[in-house]
């Protein structure tokens, strides 16, 4: 849901390059945490979970410029590391059909990947202390999505400063001027209502999916 739909060429090169570097590090850790034989065995599962996310991400919620991401569900079902890999695959596919810039795939993997990692951690904790897995899934999804939307807004806000130009500006005028490409207060005003509706819908969807799945194949979500 917190997928950054920012087009190519709006965020300074430094930030999207940093996004790719961070993503490469996260993926390297993800692959090292998943034993090679285990990862090979889980290739179909990984691919199909990424496809399911892609289906969710390809359908906007009516007129709302938001969509389900199902990254929290990927984290719950696959675990945090395979979940992050699935997020990277779905982001790359989305970029290949022009859905979000190809240069921001790295940043998107960091932001949406946080949903898989945090979603897994919160769900694992909540299901031990809450009356049902449905409630645990909804609570984990709500908190995770609030964090990831905040992260997405932070990325857009931070990217208004170009560090490569900032060094020069500090030397010459003693301060840093914003790029002023995007008004962050206006950006937050536009997306806040959509984000609230999106968080409610996605959290309910994840809760209902988890409830349905636990009734039929409880082992899928570690029950």
């Amino acid at each position: 849901m917190s997928h950054i739909h920012i087009p190519d060429g709006v965020i300074p090169e430094f930030w999207w390059a940093l996004g790719y570097v961070v993503t490469a590090i996260i993926l390297a850790v993800a692959f090292s945490r998943t034993k090679s034989v285990d990862a090979r065995r889980k290739v179909p599962l990984l691919g199909i979970m990424a496809a399911l996310m892609l289906v969710g991400q390809s359908v906007p919620l009516g007129f709302i410029p938001f969509h389900l991401s199902l990254a929290v569900l990927a984290g719950i079902a696959l675990g945090p590391w395979l979940g992050v890999i699935a997020v990277f695959i779905s982001n790359l596919f989305l970029a290949l059909i022009g859905h979000g810039g190809i240069t921001v795939v790295g940043l998107n993997t960091v932001v949406v990947g946080s949903e898989a990692i945090l979603g897994y951690l919160l769900f694992s904790t909540f299901k031990r202390h809450m009356p049902s897995v449905t409630v645990a899934a909804i609570a984990a999804a709500v908190l995770t999505l609030i964090v990831s939307v905040s992260l997405m807004i932070s990325v857009v806000a931070v990217s208004q400063v170009n560090p490569l130009e900032a060094v020069e500006e500090i030397r010459e005028v003693g301060g840093v001027a914003e790029l002023g490409r995007i008004s962050i207060p206006r950006f937050i005003t536009i997306i806040a209502p959509f984000a609230i509706v999106g968080i409610i819908i996605e959290s309910l969807a994840i809760g209902l999916i988890v409830r349905f799945v636990t009734g039929i194949r409880p082992e899928v979500i570690g029950e």
């Binding site: 739909h5 920012i6 709006v10 410029p65 790029l179 490409r181 995007i182 008004s183 206006r186």
Partner: peptide
């Protein structure tokens, strides 16, 4: 589809450098 999603950033950039 890309156009619709870019509108959020386009509207946010009114009065900016881009």
């Amino acid at each position: 589809y890309a156009l619709v999603f870019s509108l959020i950033f386009a509207i946010s950039s009114v009065g900016g450098t881009l």
